[in-house]
Design a protein around this nucleic acid. Sequence first.
DNA 1: GTAAATAGTTTTATCGAGATTTTTTTATTT
DNA 2: AAATAAAAAAATCTCGATAAAACTATTTAC
Lengths: 228, 228
Amino acid sequence: MADGSIWPADTAAPKTLTDIAYARLRADIIGGRHPADAKLRVEHLRRDYGLGATPLREALSRLTSEGFVVTVGQRGFRVAPVSVEDLDDITDMRITLELKALRQSLERGDDAWESRVVAAYYQLSKAETGEEFDFAAWEERNRAFHETLISACASPWLMRFHAILYDQHKRYRNISLQTAAPVPRDVHQEHQRIYQAALARDADTLCTETQSHIRRTADITRAVLLVR
Amino acid sequence: MADGSIWPADTAAPKTLTDIAYARLRADIIGGRHPADAKLRVEHLRRDYGLGATPLREALSRLTSEGFVVTVGQRGFRVAPVSVEDLDDITDMRITLELKALRQSLERGDDAWESRVVAAYYQLSKAETGEEFDFAAWEERNRAFHETLISACASPWLMRFHAILYDQHKRYRNISLQTAAPVPRDVHQEHQRIYQAALARDADTLCTETQSHIRRTADITRAVLLVR
DNA sequence: GTAAATAGTTTTATCGAGATTTTTTTATTT
DNA sequence: AAATAAAAAAATCTCGATAAAACTATTTAC
């Protein structure tokens, strides 16, 4: 772990109990196991996770800063609410930041970056075109692919904010997947276009394709959320 | 306080001790009272702030998420380090976000927004052209002015990220002010140009002026940081 | 001179009790 | 019957003491 990735997405190798509490709570909220608006009673969580109140409260505090949890006065913690407005806001901001990161990455990306992109795309392709579809595996490779594309961007703050929005959006997607079956669309083709534009260093095409890719995902999520 | 400003910058009306600890620690780090890289020993802070370990740890956790504090493995909390690279990163990102927010604000701002801008500019002018210069008062009005300009922007996430970067940058400015005397420049004129462009709804001019305004401040801070 | 072992310090985590606040229930009044 | 007020219950927040784990520095042995 020689890279400078301080945070977040360091779900790997949690050392302290606070880190464990943080990683698990975060995953459970994003994964929809803790539904929106649900009360997060520390006493209750203690039994569920087998942890003390201190690491749990600390983890909840960190999640508050990231907008996954809200805390009102003396009324304890709650899972952040969801709304169409919030989803739209997240989508807009994510597009803005991701396009900026992509342009930077395209300018700065060296041979090593290219290799990483090729490898990440290859793994994603396998998950998308294979016989049986493993959603968890695909999700991880999808994330890896998009993350790799912007990995040559030299702005830690940009990547930090982007990572938060990516996971915020992922929560919405997971919520909508609980309600409705995934809409069939050729995601692989979208990824292929993004991949080709990236290797061709065609920034404008890359941005256009990425934008419609994100927008398309968000629109489906949005539709499910509206019906709910 | 009927606006939707959930956070941060809600230094006002802290209810719980955690909120108090958060507000005070944040202000002390931004104000440079806790210098960069300084160890933040909970035992020590307990005596200084007269608070228990629990609210302090929670506050430090939240500040970690905002990048004001870092925590390494099992080695406790530290004030986040400073570097020219980090300052440049913050400056770039702040410009990106502030310009985006300004354009949105200009499009959506109604009469009430205009009034707020006029009032904020008037108060800032008084602080900038008056006889004796009160730095603390000026700083608050400067913040209020810039915040008011983007207050019609409808994106909570944009404002949230912007607020963090604004305060991050403020920390750097305060650090450089501890070393060197403020460089004389006509800040008031810069503000005047921004003000006029905003009321004229001239988005391009507003962005150009704001960008050079931020860039100029950052450059001075940067120079002091390099000499240090 | 290097490496292992030890002692001391720091940090992290747990527990339980007490103070404060919110929420629910019950009783009273309009 | 609805509204208000008082009382009880529940939950949250906070603290201090303490135990356990991890890191640092020093000493000791080879």
